[in-house]
């Protein structure tokens, strides 16, 4: 009993450290990536290549005054940023990085990640609603309708993969894809079923994870040029910092999930040396794509976003679900 407790504690601490380090350095990577795309060097002043920028930013944020504006709903206002960060840390506990590196594998890991994933929309709603700011309120309303619209296609595509794997266990899903890149779920060459819609499914899942994490071009909640800063307009100091880190932690989770479901997890593309490094390489390629997309496209609007979800993503993913089910039955 006590050993399990220590295990879990250690896992949680490692998860927190991993999330925090990732969130901090993803901010650096984002700025550096944005800089390179815009033909400027990005942060350079602190440390070599600006590598000391995240700790400096962190200290700045922590030492700032935590301002609670008058008239806000205090309890909700304070809870919201914690709630933005907490689910992403918990989600990390169930994500397997390799056969052996996993904090606590449970057989409904995927379900649990989705459950905690939906909580981030809750945090945005609470933060925006309690701020007593009209911009924040509009932003939180937007974020919720966005979350509802994008959870559905995301779940449907995930169910497709679950049907192929026959399990909700993330380990199991990866094991089913092992043995070279042609076995990955992204390709339509699954044993016995030639489902040509699988690449589309991958794309849908990727788009949905963009929308779920409130990243550009779906950053309607933040919408800098319309809603100033959206739901975190009124937050200062670490309140803002937690929202910010929560966003980046969600990106990491989105990338991990996409890797596990579609890109074969820690499986090597050529069937050699499977190991945690492949997983890391894959998630960072995906994260780079997140950054790359953000600095390329303009923002969508709320109705074109909902149109995309209800008219394109959901029909296609539903059709794919039916097709996969049929193919599984026939072969």
């Amino acid at each position: 009993m006590s050993l399990t407790l220590i295990n879990v504690l250690a896992a949680v601490i490692i998860a927190i450290a991993f999330v925090a380090a990732n969130a901090a350095y993803l901010v650096w990577a984002e700025r550096k990536g944005a800089g390179f795309i815009q033909r400027r060097p990005g942060p350079t002043e602190n440390g070599p290549w600006g590598l000391l920028q995240p700790p400096v930013d962190g200290i700045k944020l922590m030492t700032k005054q935590l301002l609670i504006p008058g008239g806000v709903d205090k309890i909700i206002f304070v809870i919201a940023p914690v709630l933005a960060m907490f689910p992403s840390i918990v989600s990390f506990v169930t994500i397997p990085f390799s056969d052996t590196i996993v904090a606590h594998n449970i057989n409904i890991g995927l379900l649990m990640i989705f459950v905690f994933g939906s909580m981030s929309a809750m945090a945005i709603l609470m933060g925006g609603w309690s701020s007593r700011n009209k911009y924040s309120m509009i932003s939180s309303v937007r974020a919720v309708s966005q979350a509802v619209a994008y959870e559905i296609p995301m779940l449907i595509t995930a169910i497709t993969v679950v049907m192929i794997a026959g399990s909700l266990d993330l380990m199991e899903i990866v094991h089913k894809q092992s043995g070279g890149f042609w076995h990955w779920n992204i390709w339509p060459f699954q044993k016995g079923l030639f489902n040509i819609l699988m690449p589309a499914s991958f794309l849908i899942f990727f788009i949905c994870s963009l929308a779920e994490t409130n990243r550009a071009p779906f950053d309607l909640g933040e919408a800098e040029s319309e809603l100033v800063a959206g739901y975190h307009t009124e937050y200062s100091s670490m309140g803002f910092g937690l929202f910010f880190m929560g966003e980046y932690a969600n990106i990491v989770i989105g990338a991990c999930l996409t890797t596990i479901l579609f890109l074969g997890g820690w499986d090597c593309p050529f069937g050699l040396f499977p190991g945690v490094w492949w997983f890391i390489v894959k998630i960072y390629i995906l994260i780079f794509t997140f950054i790359w997309i953000r600095w390329t496209f303009p923002r969508t609007t709320i109705y074109s976003l909902l149109n995309l979800s209800w008219k394109v993503l959901i029909p296609i993913s539903l059709f794919n679900l039916l097709l996969t089910a049929g193919l599984l039955k026939v072969f």
């Binding site: 990536g33 390179f36 795309i37 033909r39 400027r40 790359w292 390329t296 496209f297």
Partner: peptide
């Protein structure tokens, strides 16, 4: 859907090219 996706990929291609171009700012 396809023409839209295609335009997005073209945009991504352009920013990817810019990514490796030399920097133009002065410190």
């Amino acid at each position: 859907i396809f023409s839209g996706l295609w335009s997005l990929f073209i945009g991504l291609g352009i920013t990817f090219q810019e990514f490796f171009k030399p920097k133009i700012t002065i410190h």
